[in-house]
Design a protein around this nucleic acid. Structure first.
Lengths: 344, 344
DNA sequence: GTTAGCACTCACCTTCATCGAGTGCTAATC
DNA sequence: GATTAGCACTCGATGAAGGTGAGTGCTAAC
């Protein structure tokens, strides 16, 4: 069976109606509300075909139809009409930012809040990913005889610090030497390059004091990788309770539990396309507890380098077209703010 | 009317039964399950008295009684039997800590998770409050001509950093001078002392370069105060959906919304007693959306200095006695870990 | 190929009766 | 005088019965 133009139009109408109402859509509704120029009986026939092809489901015999994940996928890829925000809408969003601060964290937190407020879904914003960020300066500062503080400054303005312990004691002159050497070698490199290329190289050269050097490198790796996944801003988790699909308490609980492990979401979206907006629909999602939820993500960048991701999570019955354009805009907005702060 | 011994015993039985079952408790249940040696009719009479005195409520005429907030307060203050954890229980909890790291954040996050896992309530752990912490070292490190990094190391091992901007340029020799001076003046002082006593004093002495000094002090104040309230670890927000009192979606939403603003909770508990375990029951709580929830808090410390708070949030129908002893233990446990890490 | 018409399905709502846990009151008992 | 047994009463919860209506699939006519 082929998916002719008429079937597509009907499918589109069903999806849009269902997304709005949350109720299964019947043939009569489509015939009346959408002027497709065909009768409900014809639509019924087409709907039966669409169901056979896997695009529609019936919750029970005497109810209307609801779209399947496959239908949403088709919709997102080919059917939906994404219009970019009007200048007024865009201005409205920009107004929500109350930026006085130059704190990057503050801007990111606000982005999460705004996203969830204007969409009514749950928003998630990952802090800039350090492995994609360029290192500007590394410094090791002695605290006392035994501890030192390792500080990394990056071009995104984010700073990481960790305590390094040298049980065997430490000379500050040596630390300074290491700092200088690391800064020289690492500056303007991304962590990825450092980890895979430069460190092994240095290890070869540097025969003496290997133990101490290893401590520093371990701390550096720690501070740049391990903590990075956790730094997440979540907002609007309570919003999902507005959707009838989460009335089921077990589903709501499963959702909230997942939101407490943002690493999972990170794992799900981390492989997605480098730029632009992506949509992951229900069962496309590897995690079983997320098979009723969709995720829409966008990336943000500093200059040309993608350094982070923003996401919206909601039921599969999501206003994809609207969310798509909002995410696109917010990604750009955030990128612009960040780039601007750094170039100021 | 006086609250005789028998009334107290009955009230205690009602509270304990209701806390377990979540169902209104009838006179017959009490007579049968708790051997008070009196008949249900007597209990009925006493219950009518207790209701008149404001300790019990009836959801509707033909139902049993449930305790009021006033009753819970009485219970917590005088009736409940707090037993400390058995050595086995204590060991069980300690086992849950998978501490390899010496990262304070890691330990705190684990504490939050453990608390919520073993109690099934929502846990909240505030990171060490810096105004109560002693400063050990302050350093200003130039990043480039315009920016410098201000770093504060405290005795709790927590480090704060902020970027300070000197639009008019900066000499690194001068920064070093400021660093040394600040370290000397501030070390072993708490932020509170610094802010109220020492800074004004320095301001007086230091006539030149006032502008630059102000920038540094502002950044210091910022880094130590503004961000501190937000640093919070929450866990188990989904747990509340297990309690019938939050079946009402609006209540659940209100709860989740509050959990997104931990500052509110901080405001509620910040005035509580300096040490030990505290209990805030339902309507004792200033925030209207929390009038159905209780909060139990404990403090943790480094050495003798209280530096932070852990809390559990659940319905007013909470297992106060059990939670009380767990919180007491966890507070001590966390204090011990932290103190140990720093003295290692 | 399209549509009007019709019988059929089935979730949902309302109504109604029943059930039972729990109460308050009264009178008998200790 | 306090306690208790007994009893009538209340009222939410539960479940069955019946009606309603949105929706379907099928058939026959256009």
């Amino acid at each position: 069976m082929r998916l002719g133009e008429r079937k597509l139009r009907i499918l589109q109408a069903i999806i849009e109606d269902y997304v709005m109402s949350g109720e299964p859509v019947g043939s009569r509704t489509i015939a009346k509300k959408y002027n497709l120029g065909i009768s409900s009986a014809t639509i019924r026939n087409e709907m039966a075909d669409l169901e056979e092809m896997g695009y529609l489901k019936q919750p029970h015999t005497s109810a209307g139809r609801i779209p399947s994940d496959k239908a949403y996928r088709l919709y997102v890829d080919h059917l939906m009409e994404v219009r970019s925000l009007t200048p007024e809408e865009a201005k409205g969003i920009k107004k929500l930012y109350k930026i006085k601060t130059e704190q990057i964290e503050e801007i990111i937190a606000q982005t999460a809040k705004i996203l969830s407020d204007i969409t009514n879904y749950t928003s998630i914003v990952f802090k800039p990913e350090l492995s994609k960020v360029l290192i500007k300066k590394i410094k090791i500062m002695p605290i006392d005889e035994e501890f030192a503080l390792l500080i990394v400054v990056t071009n995104s303005g984010i700073i990481r610090d960790t305590i390094v312990r040298f049980p065997e004691g430490v000379e500050s002159s040596y630390l300074e030497k290491i700092s200088n050497m690391l800064t020289e070698r690492f500056s303007d490199k991304s962590f990825l390059e450092i980890d895979t290329l430069i460190i092994p190289e240095i290890r070869k050269e540097l025969a003496i004091n290997r133990q101490m050097f290893n401590r520093v490198v371990d701390a550096l790796t720690d501070s740049l990788t391990e903590r990075e996944k956790k730094e997440v801003y979540l907002y609007g988790t309570g919003n999902i309770l507005n959707f009838p699909e989460y009335r089921d308490l077990d589903k709501a609980k499963a959702f909230l539990n997942i939101m407490e492990e943002p690493e999972l979401i990170y794992d799900i979206i981390k492989d997605l396309a480098e730029g632009g907006v992506t949509v992951t629909i229900g069962s496309e999602n590897p995690h079983p507890d997320m098979k009723d939820s969709s995720i829409v993500t966008a990336t943000y960048h500093i200059g040309d380098r993608v350094i982070g991701t923003i996401g919206l999570i909601g039921p599969t019955r999501m206003e994809y077209a609207r969310v798509f354009s909002i995410m696109d805009y917010m990604g750009k907005c955030l990128s612009q703010y960040l780039t601007q702060i750094l170039n100021d």
